[in-house]
Design a protein around this nucleic acid. Sequence first.
DNA 1: TAAATAAATGACACCCTTGTCATATAGTCT
DNA 2: AGACTATATGACAAGGGTGTCATTTATTTA
Lengths: 207, 207
Amino acid sequence: MPTETFHRLPAEKKQRIFQAAVREFARCRFSEASINQIIKQADIPRGSFYQYFAGKEDLYLYILQEISKEKLDVYNRFTVADSSRGFFDVMEEAIHAIFAWADDNEDYNMIGLRMAQDDSDFMRETIRKMAGSKSRMITIIEQDQKKGKIRQDVEAEAILEIIQNISYPLIQEYYSSKNQKAAIDKIKIYFDILFRGLQAKQEAGGH
Amino acid sequence: MPTETFHRLPAEKKQRIFQAAVREFARCRFSEASINQIIKQADIPRGSFYQYFAGKEDLYLYILQEISKEKLDVYNRFTVADSSRGFFDVMEEAIHAIFAWADDNEDYNMIGLRMAQDDSDFMRETIRKMAGSKSRMITIIEQDQKKGKIRQDVEAEAILEIIQNISYPLIQEYYSSKNQKAAIDKIKIYFDILFRGLQAKQEAGGH
DNA sequence: TAAATAAATGACACCCTTGTCATATAGTCT
DNA sequence: AGACTATATGACAAGGGTGTCATTTATTTA
């Protein structure tokens, strides 16, 4: 909730502030991010910043909100495509989509990573607030569970959570690794193990 | 590498400093940990601290080294026990051992968690240095791979890494969760999925 | 154009942290 | 005791960060 004054700002200036903030929140965790850096980057005076935002939290929440809008589009692009496909198919495509997107939006992804690394009260609360409604992914998982493709003894939410948790170190490695090809190979291995572990038990194994 | 002066200190004082440092490094990440807090806690004057350690890095490395000594004992206790047992058995026991130890050594575990959360250059380098020789776990995994109990298309090191990565969010949740029983249930699910994903393909499924 | 409202600005006070260093104190050896 | 070495200590400078506010500058309205 930035101030009215901020909203009335020329788009160019708003954009400059937005980008400076994104860069800073991608650079380090919320607690370490510095307003000083942001205003220097955005080239606005200290006083102006406080005319636009109540403080760092306020700015952060605004940034997150803006990013979510964009992200939602990308995210829906592959989950919406064809809900008749199974979870493993969709995930396979999603992984590619996500890593392709990651290449183009390093900063946005880093912010997500920083959130995962951050265990402050503020961040826990923020994550809780952001956790939107039941995602399309859940529906797909549940469908596959009904069809007997995915084991039914684990809740769909839990499965999604596992995938998220497993993804964070992978994305992190992907970014920090000099050898991104090796990182992708590792991702494939991770998910192969995960997918096999998630498959419903097959009574009679056929190959 | 603390100074000679530090080593010559009475055990009680050394211990006080050690414990204050452990508490601080458990409280937050390395970059956020404050020498000020540590000397206040340990009740030593600022000047003394710099008479004992070159700085925060120096202290941190010392703390890590001391903890490793203790941890190695615990870790070996279950891996050394009976190397004829398979990986899944050993891990099952290890999980219990680790979480039991976690209850008694919250601070030590938190430090490990903080390391995992920390992606500074210093920490990357530190982790690299600490990564000891081939662990006994690797040997057990490799044995099971030879026996055909664990899939052979994934390197033992990679398997261990996956387990570590999967463990961090679990331990974190375990600590932050009010409901530790639920946390343990989740751990069981995670590892059940993981273990099944790691099993060698069975040509003919028997139940 | 004068008055009133909105925005911009940067100096300032305050807080926290780090590393140093001159000085004081304790301990040891002859 | 006198001399010399080892420790202890806290004031201090320097650096970074935050939020405020009196003042200046623009913009709008009458």
